[in-house]
């Protein structure tokens, strides 16, 4: 399928943020604090990172943030469908063999796309 990714259309894409003030993390935090203040959260908990009030505490020593920024990388680079994200016992019979699956080498055609192009052509 030849669908351009969002933003790839370049100049033709409208800038939806035009006319609005630039979004900053500080501004966002001020808005979050404003909402939480109305719910009666104590002021000292809203000082630095108000969103941490909404975090979930697990049993493993880390908190689950209420909103995840796109800056966190996955633990190991994995191409979906190839080891280690899947068993090395190999893909199911109808999928192409994982010959060039080593991360860092050119990305093989994901099985789903290969199958889709077969059916649409």
């Amino acid at each position: 399928m030849d669908v351009p990714e969002s933003g790839a259309a370049g100049t033709a894409a409208p800038n939806l943020a035009e006319g609005f003030p630039a979004a900053t993390r500080e501004r966002w935090r001020a808005l979050v604090a404003g909402v939480l203040r109305k719910s009666g959260v104590a002021e000292e908990r809203l000082a630095d990172t108000p969103e941490s009030v909404l975090a979930t505490h697990g049993y493993d020593g880390f908190d689950i943030a209420p909103s995840t920024p796109p800056t966190r990388p996955p633990p190991t680079p994995a191409i979906p469908g190839w080891p280690p994200s899947r068993a090395a016992t190999g893909p199911a019979e109808e999928w192409p063999e994982a010959g060039t699956s080593v991360p860092g080498t050119p990305t093989p055609t994901p099985p789903c796309c290969a199958a889709a192009s077969k059916t649409t052509s």
């Binding site: 493993d60 880390f62 943030a65 796109p70 966190r72 633990p75 994995a78 979906p80 789903c112």
Partner: peptide
């Protein structure tokens, strides 16, 4: 029929990373 459909989600990737670390 689908492999790793949750992959790429910021939330799932972050949780995976944190669980991996712990």
């Amino acid at each position: 029929q689908v492999i790793d459909p949750a992959g790429g989600s910021f939330y799932v990737e972050a949780l995976t990373r944190d669980l991996y670390g712990a």
